[in-house]
């Protein structure tokens, strides 16, 4: 059975060319990052493939490089394509961010294959 889609945020909370962290875990750390580019919203698990527990933003909701064309891991500057999560330069070269399928319904963003929250 498909799991229920999970509400992530309102679409208008993510400006074009910007990003947002959503689905906080019990400690308040965002498990998912959303990036909006050319009207599309892309979702990825907020962990850099380089380390096993590396949140990628440098500040709340700041996941992109300066011109908003790449997802940047602030740990070591790795750059990922927004459309498919492939790392083009950085410590995780050639590796891929884990995709989260998202869709938009009535102005809200939902995710359908969110990772399970690890047991605390």
């Amino acid at each position: 059975m498909m799991p229920e889609p999970q509400f992530l945020c309102q679409l208008d909370e993510i400006e074009e060319g910007r990003s947002k962290g959503v689905a906080p875990n019990r400690r308040g750390r965002d498990r998912i990052l959303l990036a909006r580019r050319d009207g599309e919203v892309y979702g990825y698990v907020n962990t850099c493939p380089h380390y096993d527990r590396a949140p990628m933003a440098w500040k709340k909701d700041e996941f992109l490089n300066a011109d908003g064309t790449r997802i940047m891991c602030a740990s070591h500057g790795a750059l990922f394509r927004i459309e498919d999560g492939v790392c083009e330069v950085g410590p995780c070269l050639g590796q891929v961010l884990r995709r989260v399928d998202v869709f938009i319904r009535e102005g809200a963003v939902y995710g359908v294959n969110l990772p399970e929250e690890p047991k605390v």
Partner: peptide, 27 residues
């Protein structure tokens, strides 16, 4: 709102207390 990466804690080699943060300088 900055992203804590590792810490606070205390290293063994060097004995220094540590707390690491992500930053836009890519380190």
């Amino acid at each position: 709102g900055y992203e804590s990466f590792w810490g606070p804690g205390r290293h063994k080699f060097g004995s220094n207390w540590f707390w690491y943060f992500n930053c836009p300088l890519g380190t």
